[in-house]
Simulated scan of single mutants.
Amino acid sequence: MIFHITEQSIWSAAQSSGDYRAPSLETEGFIHLSERSQVLWVASQFYAQTSGLLLLGIEPAQLAAELRYDTVPGHGTFPHLYGPLNLDAVVQVWPFEPQANGHFVMPS
């Protein structure tokens, strides 16, 4: 399973439209994803004081768009989805709120 952090409002809009398009798809050409071991680092770097978040669990074998693993200089290799995320590839959705100290914990 791979993961994506998003805002509840963006995920709700995807439910209406039939597919998920993160803002980065328009600005960078892909949707940022993470391996399990990368999720907490991404959350602390980019979402530390953000509420209203969800963590999407995605089954890579069900993706309709191209999945690539790209090197992020200084940070390793990350999965990126080069197209919209088809909703049937999302197999789990968890609330993903920072704790009082701003840190995140992976859902069980």
Results as ranks from 00 to 15, higher is better:
Q15F: 09
Y69T: 07
D70A: 15
P95C: 12
G102S: 08
W41D: 08
L33A: 02
S16C: 13
G18L: 12
F3Q: 10
G102A: 07
N101A: 11
F46G: 08
V105I: 13
F78I: 14
R68Y: 09
T27V: 03
S108W: 15
S12V: 14
G29Q: 02
Q99C: 08
L53C: 10
L87M: 06
P60F: 10
S108V: 15
T71A: 14
G74V: 09
F3D: 08
V105C: 13
I5T: 05
T6M: 11
D70S: 14
I58W: 03
N86P: 09
F78R: 15
P23S: 02
L33Y: 00
E59V: 06
T71I: 15
T50Q: 08
S9F: 03
G52S: 03
A65W: 04
Y47M: 07
A14L: 02
T27R: 00
W94H: 14
S108L: 14
P84D: 07
I2C: 00
F3R: 13
V90R: 11
S12I: 08
P73Y: 11
L56R: 01
S44D: 13
S9V: 15
V39M: 07
P60T: 01
R68E: 08
Y20W: 03
G57R: 02
T50C: 09
Y82A: 05
E7Q: 12
T27P: 00
R21Q: 00
L87H: 12
L25W: 00
L87F: 02
S37E: 12
V42M: 10
V91C: 13
Y47K: 01
F46M: 12
D19H: 07
P95H: 05
G18H: 09
T6G: 04
L53Q: 01
A61T: 07
M1A: 14
F30A: 00
T50A: 10
F104V: 12
F46D: 05
Y20S: 01
P60R: 06
H75W: 15
V93Q: 04
V105S: 12
Y47S: 06
V39I: 06
E59S: 08
S16H: 11
I5L: 09
L81Y: 03
E26N: 10
E26T: 02
A43V: 02
Y69H: 14
L40S: 04
A43L: 03
D70L: 13
I31K: 00
A89M: 01
L81N: 09
Q8N: 11
Q38L: 00
A64F: 03
L33R: 04
A13T: 12
P95T: 03
L87T: 05
S17N: 08
Q8T: 11
S9L: 14
S12P: 11
W11A: 04
W11F: 14
V93C: 04
G52A: 04
F78M: 15
G74I: 14
F30L: 01
W11D: 08
G29W: 00
P73D: 11
E66H: 11
L55E: 09
P98Y: 07
Q62F: 05
M106Q: 13
I5H: 09
G29C: 00
Q62R: 10
I31W: 01
A43D: 02
T50F: 02
V93F: 01
S17Y: 07
E28L: 06
S24M: 03
F3G: 03
G18N: 11
A14Q: 01
R36H: 15
W94E: 13
P60K: 06
A14N: 05
V90E: 01
L87Q: 09
G29N: 05
T27S: 01
S51N: 08
Q49S: 14
M1L: 11
D88W: 05
